[in-house]
Nucleic acid binder design. Structure first.
Length: 272
DNA sequence: ACGAGCGCCTGTCGGC
DNA sequence: TGCCGACAGGCGCTCG
């Protein structure tokens, strides 16, 4: 499900409280439960369940598509992968069939990690340094100037779409926002990274930032049965718009596979 | 260094 | 109606 804007929205909602639930900041964990062992990446189950009770949530943040709960002594890091979701519920709510992990707080609230496809992962680590060591820059990092971005693209010789999806290159983009940003920049998903000139690199960087900003403003994108509350799906220009008229030239949007991912683009506005 | 293929999982949808 | 394959917002691995 979630790309940068969806994870950012979840982080903000947990921080400020949403849907009658309070802010998680300052809440103390009473009890932790794990329902699907492979959801836990680190440490082992016994240590995980033993370390969490008594920990207080000090801060909530996001890095790439990771959600970070900074606890008194540990960092609880959650990646939602394809179908993960976090829900604040009253402690007496019945567990959902797809709940993989739950934290019960002293206040009577519960944070449930719900994940039908079981791809999501959770880490409890002393700090996030190692886990995040190989991540690329956040798209809004001011160190990313058009010049540095262009130089990064020049260094690689890869198809532009799989490169943008590579979290080691730039962090936070997924399939939706990549297709949308490439369309906005007028760049074909199969262009090679080193073929982009400075002007195109600048246009792409601006398109990435604009697309993500619009996504966050819309609280992310919601469709199918996963992730609720966002409205960015109403602003898709190409994603899931196969055969619809291009918003720019009215020719039909095409869908192909690029790097094993469904890829939507306008062959006229994004020439190869 | 890169791309393709596959594994991890469950659910939904379209075609026959 | 029922079955079967394709596909889905992610990512890590192996192989050529």
């Amino acid at each position: 499900m979630p790309e940068l804007p969806e994870v950012e929205t979840i982080a903000r909602n947990l921080r400020k409280g949403a849907n009658s639930a309070p802010s998680l900041i300052g809440e103390t964990i009473q009890n932790a439960r794990l329902f699907w062992a492979r959801t836990l990446a680190e440490p082992d189950e016994a240590a995980f369940l033993e370390r969490l009770p008594g920990q207080r949530v000090e801060a909530i943040s996001r890095r790439a598509k990771f959600l970070v709960l900074t606890l008194s002594q540990w960092a609880l890091v959650i990646h939602l992968r394809m179908s993960g979701d976090l829900r604040m519920l009253h402690s007496d709510a019945l567990p959902d069939f797809h709940d993989r992990m739950a934290l019960d707080f002293c206040s009577g609230w519960r944070l449930s990690f719900n994940d039908p496809r079981k791809f999501g992962r959770i880490w409890l680590v002393p700090d996030t340094k190692q886990l995040f060591a190989s991540l690329g820059p956040e798209p809004d990092d001011p160190v990313l100037t058009p010049q540095t971005f262009h130089a990064m693209l020049q260094q690689k010789k890869r198809q532009i779409k799989p490169l943008l999806l590579d979290q080691h290159f730039i962090a936070g983009l997924g399939n939706i926002y990549t297709d949308e940003a490439l369309f906005t920049a007028g760049i074909h998903p199969l262009r090679t990274s080193e073929s982009l000139d400075l002007r195109e690199a600048e246009k792409l960087l601006a398109a990435i930032r604009l697309t993500l900003r619009n996504g966050i403003e819309a609280n992310g994108a919601s469709f199918d049965w996963v992730y609720r509350g966002g409205s960015f799906q109403n602003h898709f220009q190409v994603y899931q718009k196969t055969n619809s008229p291009c918003p720019c030239c009215a020719l039909p949007i095409q869908k192909t596979m690029v790097g094993q991912r469904g890829t939507h683009f306008c062959p006229n506005c994004q020439p190869l």
